[in-house]
Design a protein around this nucleic acid. Structure first.
Lengths: 301, 301
DNA sequence: TTGTCAACTATGTCTAGGACAAAATTACAT
DNA sequence: ATGTAATTTTGTCCTAGACATAGTTGACAA
């Protein structure tokens, strides 16, 4: 039980919070927080309580707040911000809250069953747009608010992954156009978006190849060539820094042949000011179906 | 096509190679390699060719070589080392090389089909020990040798994942003991080992809960409590630094109640000198089935 | 009122070279 | 051969300064 007063060195804190060592040090210098104690070697040791605060701060930054306004706030202040911030309630339905209750109760089997039921009832496109997407947002907000824990979110992701993977196995067709290569750039570890894209593409009659997450840019180019891909589709979550998204897209666009289209989706791209030349940003998943149509029209012309 | 002469800053190189910024700088100081050029800001810019070499160096370090012997070697010298190094041929069967050929030919659908076939023919335990495990090693070595590309390895992982996930969905039973919580520590992104463990546990009649990868230590403790887990099982791949494995296991063991067992598996643990107190290391997957038996015996006593 | 551009501020990432503990290796004795 | 002690190797952390660029603010025009 002495876990409560554990101390972590800067490397561990970087891994646990996703905040870089340099950033942790410069925050300390500028804002006076975090304020780690030092060991005999004069090295920083962060108390668990501060790591907890850093985790919340990271989430607030991820949804667009600025460091000056949140770094150094006390736990209650952070909690206030968190409960206030997500005012963009897109009218969550009663059903979504029922799913959330299952997550909170750790009823993973029941959750998976309920999700499969919803998928069958609504059909895949509506399931994705009216259940999975808003549920992701709801779970994300609940986490932000501290209503659910990290491991509960992991449990949730796992069930969604399970449901979508099973479905994708069933609806994957050989042939079809365009041929789409599916992956994320190094640094983006979320694969849920890719699974949603895979399902949407399958329903649109396209043929997609899943490469998994974190493929180096040079390798994406090689894979596109080897697979004679017409399109490379990337997914970006909110945790990916906009700067990295931008430069990644630029580099990839430059390295890819001109006749291979580059599509970028996911909540991460909503924060991009505007698209690079030759890169199509699509946030709602429905854009994707449309884009497939446009691609076919352009190709047949 | 100017991709060939691209320059990368130190942050990008860290992400692409997995070698930390500090390490890159200290190698430069000590071994004279890498030798990046500088921009007008005096910041390092690594030529693509050196990044390529760094990738190979990283692989050689991962299999146990020491920096002094490999950092700074030229591309041909590295290639020589790589083709020599993996002399631990465990008698790969003809079938395994056929799988490898499918990977090289990017025949993902055929590969998946062949894997499913092998699984049905051999049964899951043999499939895991005689096909998946050695195939993982073979693919890893092929990559090391430069015979297959990163994206081809991604393609391979994706198909294995697909096959195992589908199987696990079918053999997952409610109830059963012990109750095992399945995850990896922050820093370990490989999920393949977890899927293999999940399958093995299901066959042994245990009940496992998959938490996905990279769960913070504190959260694992909470999850174990919420799920009334008897065992927490962690998977470590070769890319996880032995140091991090050791300290992670220590911390988790300390934070976990004494009556919750802690099992660690995967190729990463083979490099651990000896187990911490209260931590069971198990490298071959078969140890797992045995451990389940031992646990049941101890519990009934 | 809304839109655009410039000036300003905030922020993350990079630099240097030194330091030190832990891991790995070598030397030596049993 | 096996254990132990001395030595070398190696990754990570330190400080404090610098600077490009993203975000914000304010002035001015439509």
């Amino acid at each position: 039980m002495n876990q409560k007063n554990s101390l972590f060195n800067i490397g561990v804190v970087e891994r646990e919070t996703g905040i870089g060592k340099d950033t942790l040090r410069v925050w300390e210098r500028r804002y006076g927080f975090p304020a780690p104690v030092r060991d005999q070697k004069e090295e920083r040791l962060y108390p668990e309580e501060q790591v907890e605060r850093l985790r919340l701060i990271k989430r607030l930054l991820d949804i667009g707040m600025r460091p000056a306004k949140v770094v150094g706030l006390s736990m209650p202040e952070l909690n206030t911000l968190m409960t206030e911030a997500p005012r963009n309630e897109p009218g969550y339905t009663e059903e979504l809250f029922e799913f959330l209750e299952l997550v909170k109760a750790h009823q993973s089997a029941e959750l998976r069953f309920a999700l499969n039921l919803a998928m069958m009832r609504q059909g895949m496109p509506d399931f994705l747009s009216k259940t999975v997407t808003p549920l992701n947002a709801l779970v994300g907000e609940a986490w932000l608010r501290g209503e659910i824990l990290v491991f509960e979110e992991h449990l949730y992701s796992e069930q969604i992954t399970s449901v979508l993977r099973a479905a994708n196995t069933l609806i994957r067709a050989p042939g079809g156009s365009p041929r789409v290569l599916l992956t994320t750039l190094p640094g983006e570890a979320h694969s849920l978006g890719l699974l949603m894209v895979e399902a949407t593409l399958a329903l649109a009659g396209a043929q997609s190849t899943m490469l998994g997450v974190q493929t180096p840019i040079g390798e994406i180019v090689l894979a596109a060539r080897a697979h004679r891909a017409d399109v490379v589709a990337l997914s970006f979550s909110m945790v990916m820094p906009p700067l990295q998204i931008k430069s990644g897209l630029q580099q990839l666009r430059q390295a890819l042949p001109r006749d291979v289209a580059l599509w970028a989706g996911g909540s991460g791209v909503s924060r991009q000011r505007k698209a690079e030349d030759g890169v199509q940003l699509m946030d709602p998943l429905s854009d994707l179906t449309e884009a497939v149509g446009v691609w076919r029209a352009a190709r047949s012309a």
